[in-house]
């Protein structure tokens, strides 16, 4: 089973890298782009086949390592 994890900064946490991307896009002539936020995307191949157990495992991985929940949120997608 494949797990896809998106990790994003919580709203209210300043994202200087997102701001820099926003400025570069404006410099390249892309008008009308605001509030750029950057994050991380992590793919995992799991031997677990039970979606409920897989989700519990990946949630524990996010809490213990993949995300820093002081500043980051995570969303887990699973496909069989």
């Amino acid at each position: 089973m494949k797990a896809r994890v998106h990790i994003t900064l919580k709203s209210g946490v300043l994202d200087p890298q997102g701001k820099a991307i926003e400025h570069s896009l404006a410099d390249l002539g892309f008008a009308g782009v605001g509030d750029v936020r950057q994050g991380k995307y992590i793919e995992l191949d799991l031997t677990e086949t039970d979606p409920e157990k897989a989700r519990a495992d990946v949630t524990a991985m996010c809490e213990k390592l993949l995300a820093n929940t002081v500043i980051e949120n995570y969303v887990i997608d699973l496909d069989a």
Binding site: P16, Q17, A20, V70
Partner: peptide, 17 residues
């Protein structure tokens, strides 16, 4: 220390990048 939970908070990218 912050990542291990021994101290609170987090050290983020410098504001000036």
């Amino acid at each position: 220390l912050t990542e291990s939970g021994l101290l609170p908070g987090v050290l983020m990218r410098n504001a000036g990048l």
